[in-house]
Design a protein around this nucleic acid. Structure first.
Lengths: 128, 128
DNA sequence: ATATTATCTCAATAAGTAATGAGATATTGA
DNA sequence: TCAATATCTCATTACTTATTGAGATAATAT
């Protein structure tokens, strides 16, 4: 759950690239089960295999995604705890001296996660 | 409050550099009033003025900080709505298909912002 | 074993980003 | 106006990162 500065830097760097940000968004939406590299490439509109592999490896090294082999495919999935930790890292700093600025961020989250944060207080599955 | 993909990419790129991340954290803690460029440089342990100016300009272009002239100093301050929007951007994607993964993120925020999110449901001051 | 599918690895090239140092601009006080 | 303070701008150099294409590795089916 806690993210070091080095980890945050790596994660931000990974997220600051168009292809990688698209991959992360795609995998986050794909859910914990993830999807094979080939499907990611197709969804991105045909990225070359080497390029795709490069970005997936970068994301994996940054801890934003993970992979597992399944048959002849390699399935990639988002690592939700890293995303949560990144948010916590930013907000922790944010709150440190001026808690009042956190309200809007929490409000934004509460809005986006309306059904989960208000109706489903169930224990998390993939959090760190 | 809404952040486009291009804005998110710019913000992530800005946050992925050690000096700039340190600046943002410093300014976020400095509060809405901000602090002069020179003080930022000193707090960072003596960065050259050109280097500091370069990074501050980068952050300002990414919408993470803003500046105003005050006497002979230029005061920089964090733009909280961009940070909130960035969080909302990530979480919006996160929630889109799998709301259950948001719970940990919200919990992390609620924990970090305990006093503000639970005791002070006052209207936000700097949100977009 | 061989062919096929799926993905990774490597080397080369191209492009973008950061640090440095010199100098320019703006504000204030003598 | 002149000097001092505070910060920005520009050019150079060094470093890092992304793309491409060829080829290697792993798993499966015939």
């Amino acid at each position: 759950m806690s993210v070091t500065e080095a980890e945050a830097l790596a994660a931000f760097a990974a997220l600051s690239q168009e292809t990688r940000l698209a991959i992360v968004r795609l995998l986050v939406r794909a859910g914990p089960e993830g999807m094979p590299a080939g499907a990611v490439g197709e969804a991105l509109g045909g990225a070359s295999s080497s390029r795709l592999s490069f970005h997936l490896a970068h994301l994996e090294q940054a801890g934003l995604v993970r992979s597992r082999r399944e048959g002849r495919s390699i399935i990639y999935s988002a690592v939700y705890p890293t995303l949560s930790g990144l948010v916590a890292f930013l907000m922790r700093d944010c709150c440190d001296g001026h808690p009042e600025v956190c309200a809007p961020a929490v409000a934004a989250l509460a809005c986006a996660c309306d059904s989960s944060s208000k109706s489903k207080p169930e224990p998390e599955a993939t959090n760190a």
